[in-house]
Amino acid sequence: MLDDRARMEAAKKEKVEQILAEFQLQEEDLKKVMRRMQKEMDRGLRLETHEEASVKMLPTYVRSTPEGSEVGDFLSLDLGGTNFRVMLVKVGEGEEGQWSVKTKHQMYSIPEDAMTGTAEMLFDYISECISDFLDKHQMKHKKLPLGFTFSFPVRHEDIDKGILLNWTKGFKASGAEGNNVVGLLRDAIKRRGDFEMDVVAMVNDTVATMISCYYEDHQCEVGMIVGTGCNACYMEEMQNVELVEGDEGRMCVNTEWGAFGDSGELDEFLLEYDRLVDESSANPGQQLYEKLIGGKYMGELVRLVLLRLVDENLLFHGEASEQLRTRGAFETRFVSQVESDTGDRKQIYNILSTLGLRPSTTDCDIVRRACESVSTRAAHMCSAGLAGVINRMRESRSEDVMRITVGVDGSVYKLHPSFKERFHASVRRLTPSCEITFIESEEGSGRGAALVSAVACKKACMLGQ
């Protein structure tokens, strides 16, 4: 009897593995994704193909990295998701002549009506938060230079001027797309009239992360975010950046690689679950690469896999709870928690219980395998993109072996128990001629924006502006 049951459990697990095998990517698959990513990057950089390229390769006008001589107080704003952060950054000489960066910050959550109302409502709310922060720190009387981390696709015309191309991540505030974001912020500050600010720089969160990590390690020339969304930036040779005049030196390019796949480059790798996630998203047909990796989508992918296993009578005796059938019910943090389970399955059992399920031991094991399959594919897909960037940098610099540091931020990278190990191992397999160091950014977005502002202020002083 026991043997029969054991055989049935083994057969069930084997069927589960057959279904989950769809998520496995072979090294040849990853090399294919990497080569296609490089081709799209090239198209994004070139003037004649930029418009139709899915990977936009947006110039950021960040050319210099901090040298350690900029000092002063800077205000930093960070808008990239449902939370908005205001930070005071003091850049100065530390002990023994070292450079020191001290920060104080406060988080504000953005109400739904500000995210989806008008641009005026959104930026009025942001300036209200700045006003509140300055009151708390008794700094209303000071006109501070301000660095703005704005983590949406922007076409820069200068370091302090950028046109919002399109909202992502659930934002829909009308009247912002096609307009200068810094102008919208300046107008809102003017409307309030109770404080003055000098907006000197606007950067993407990947750029802010790279600059913040450069402060720790001067070989950091790539910034990457794996959180709600997924994106990367890197220092490109100016001669390859056709959208900006000049051939000397390097400029940081914001790849906006989340949109890779929007022209069909990933079609052969998309599964039924991916198509369902895409169809029910706020932007169907867009940001397809990001939807395979980002935390906004990972939990939902797992939920759809679990429903398939229920329908195949391989999980929960073929019956799903009402909660499990509800879109968004299986949160991405559950994926991390399930994979963090120590082996007694308590954590998995508790999560499934909150979803109205009474799982068996085998159910718990199957749910864990589903989570591992989805998150491992995410790590491997992400590795193909980064390997594409790094191999490109090595080739354009004609280096036999390139040493490089990548600064990384984002909740999936930082909080998932195995993502970074799987990701690092896969990147290294795909970049055999590179020695890569990964560092995690601390308060990256805010500190990085302030350091970019410090560079901009120093330049302005040198130019006598």
Rank of each mutant, 00 (worst) to 15 (best):
Y215R: 00
T206P: 05
G448E: 11
R325F: 15
V86H: 01
F123C: 13
H317Q: 14
V374D: 00
M393Y: 15
R394S: 07
Q347W: 04
V222G: 01
Q106I: 07
E216M: 02
S54T: 15
Q286D: 11
V89T: 06
W257K: 01
V33I: 07
E442S: 14
E331Y: 10
I436N: 10
Y125E: 10
V62F: 02
F148W: 09
C220G: 01
K414F: 12
A119I: 10
D267V: 03
V62K: 00
C220R: 00
Y108F: 08
S76N: 04
V181R: 04
K296Q: 13
L77Q: 01
V427L: 10
L306F: 05
G343F: 07
D205N: 03
D344Y: 08
N313S: 11
L324H: 01
E272W: 07
A425L: 13
L451W: 11
G193E: 07
E339H: 04
L146W: 09
I404W: 07
A11L: 15
P111F: 06
W167E: 13
E265K: 15
L77E: 01
D78V: 07
M462T: 05
F123K: 08
M34A: 03
I436G: 02
I404K: 05
E399G: 05
L314W: 11
D42V: 09
S174H: 03
L77T: 05
N313T: 08
S398A: 03
S340M: 05
M393A: 14
D247E: 02
L79W: 09
Y215S: 00
F419K: 02
E40R: 01
D205R: 06
F23V: 07
Q323A: 05
C230G: 02
A282W: 15
R5S: 15
L270V: 10
G444T: 15
H50C: 05
D400P: 01
E248A: 07
K414N: 12
V277A: 09
G410S: 10
C233K: 00
V401I: 04
F84C: 07
E442W: 14
G68E: 04
L352Q: 01
K190F: 15
E70G: 09
E248R: 03
S76V: 02
E248P: 03
G294Y: 09
T354R: 09
G258R: 15
V55S: 02
A329W: 13
C233F: 00
K32P: 07
